[in-house]
Structure formats: structure tokens, C-alpha cells
């Protein structure tokens, strides 16, 4: 929503968005209701519908596919366990995304703690002398894309995303990659519209700064 709109126009826009949001959730609402009643096929349909975006969000947040797989699995398991508590105040997609973000945040904290402890030093042995030679610690930032799409921009973007703070990374991914609107962002992140806008602006600025000199 644009702050320059007049009040009546803003209310009209709210009604349009709400109607559109209701139209979007109708598809999920029916499946959610059946899944709550124990319909496994209904829950499986929800998984099929949303696993791509949950996986990609987790992958870009955490930086590697294995952690993303675990995070996606944990997200859907949490969703399954707490389906009964989903009140329908927000769309199912918004609720699901919020859970995925929380799972990723928890894992990021865990990764940072382990990295600080230098938990996995790689030790190599010099065959000639038999002395242990410690290799540099693995870089917590993600490496090149697994499937190696190979574009320069993709690589630069991945490195820049990894260098962003988790707060900036998540709001950029949610808005630019997932396409969440400002309203959905406020619901997912649990903050006000002004906060969402300013955080997004700072995230874009930070990303631009990281890409400067690298891309184009």
C-alpha cells in the first residue's frame, strides 16, 4: 500500500486485497479443513503445493541444500502438529512462511554458535612428516550453486545474500523471491508496515552496496 493514497482509496484497496487474499486462501482453506479432520491426502496436497517455496526460502536463508531439506521437513512437521491451532486469521501460506522463517532463524543461531566454537577443524596429515596440519575452517557462507547454473550474477547474488544480515536476507527473500506483499510481510514477520518498509529499504541498499563493483 502506498502512503500517498487517500483514506477512502486506501480502504478500497484493503477491500480488494482482502477479497483477493480470500480468493487465494480458498484453495488452501478447504485442504486445511480436511487435513485437520485427519485427511492425509489433503495435507499431502498442501505439502505438494508449498514445498517448492519453503525449500527455496530455507535454502537461500541457510545457504546449503542439506540444511534446507532438514528445515523444510521440520517446517511441515510443525505445521502438521499445530494445524489445530491455525485460526485462519492470516492465509495458510503466510502462516506456513512464518513457521519456515522461525525454523530457519533457529538453525542460523545454532550454526553461528557452532561456528564460534570452531567445532569442526579439518585436520590433514602430512604423509612425509606425519604431522597434523590444520586446514582453514569451512566458510559459513554458502559456496557456488549446487547445480552450477553458472551465471555470474547468480554467483554474485548468492555471495551477497550470504553476506547480508539474517534480518535483511529474510525480508528480501520474502518480498523479492517469494513475492509477499507488504501486508503479508507484516503478518509473517509480526511487525508494522513502517518497519517492513524501512527494513526492506535498508536491505535493498545493503544488497546494492555488496553488489557494487561485482555486478554489473
Amino acid at each position: 500500500m502506498d502512503d500517498t493514497l487517500t483514506y477512502p482509496s486506501r480502504m478500497l484497496l484493503w477491500a480488494v486485497i482482502a477479497r483477493r487474499a480470500t480468493a487465494v486462501t480458498d484453495q488452501d482453506a478447504a485442504a486445511v479443513a480436511r487435513a485437520r479432520d485427519g485427511d492425509e491426502a489433503a495435507f499431502e496436497a498442501l505439502v505438494s503445493r508449498h514445498e517448492r517455496e519453503v525449500f527455496n526460502l530455507a535454502w537461500r536463508m541457510l545457504g546449503n541444500r542439506e540444511d534446507a531439506l532438514d528445515a523444510a521437513q521440520e517446517t511441515f512437521l510443525r505445521v502438521f502438529r499445530s494445524l489445530a491451532s491455525f485460526r485462519g486469521d492470516a492465509t495458510f501460506r503466510t502462516w506456513l512462511t512464518g513457521i519456515a522463517i522461525n525454523v530457519c532463524r533457529n538453525r542460523l543461531v545454532s550454526v553461528e554458535v557452532r561456528a564460534r566454537r570452531a567445532a569442526v577443524p579439518l585436520v590433514s596429515e602430512d604423509a612425509a612428516t606425519g604431522e597434523a596440519v590444520e586446514l582453514p575452517l569451512p566458510d559459513p557462507a554458502p559456496g557456488p550453486d549446487a547445480t552450477a547454473r553458472g551465471t555470474e550474477l547468480r554467483r554474485a547474488l548468492e555471495r551477497a545474500l550470504a553476506a547480508l544480515s539474517p534480518e535483511h536476507r529474510e525480508i528480501l527473500l520474502l518480498h523479492e523471491m517469494q513475492g509477499l506483499s507488504y501486508d503479508e510481510l507484516t503478518a509473517t514477520l509480526g511487525c508494522r508496515l513502517g518497519t517492513v518498509k524501512s527494513r526492506l529499504a535498508r536491505a535493498r541498499e545493503a544488497l546494492r552496496g555488496l553488489l557494487e563493483g561485482v555486478w554489473p
Partner: peptide, 14 residues
């Protein structure tokens, strides 16, 4: 271009 690439990242199949 960055925005387009970010959107493309979201299309990767799990």
C-alpha cells in the same frame, strides 16, 4: 536484473 534473478531462485525444484 537482480530482482529477476531472485525470482528465478525461487523456482528451483526441491
Amino acid at each position: 536484473a537482480v530482482r529477476s534473478e531472485l525470482q528465478a531462485m525461487g523456482e528451483e525444484a526441491p
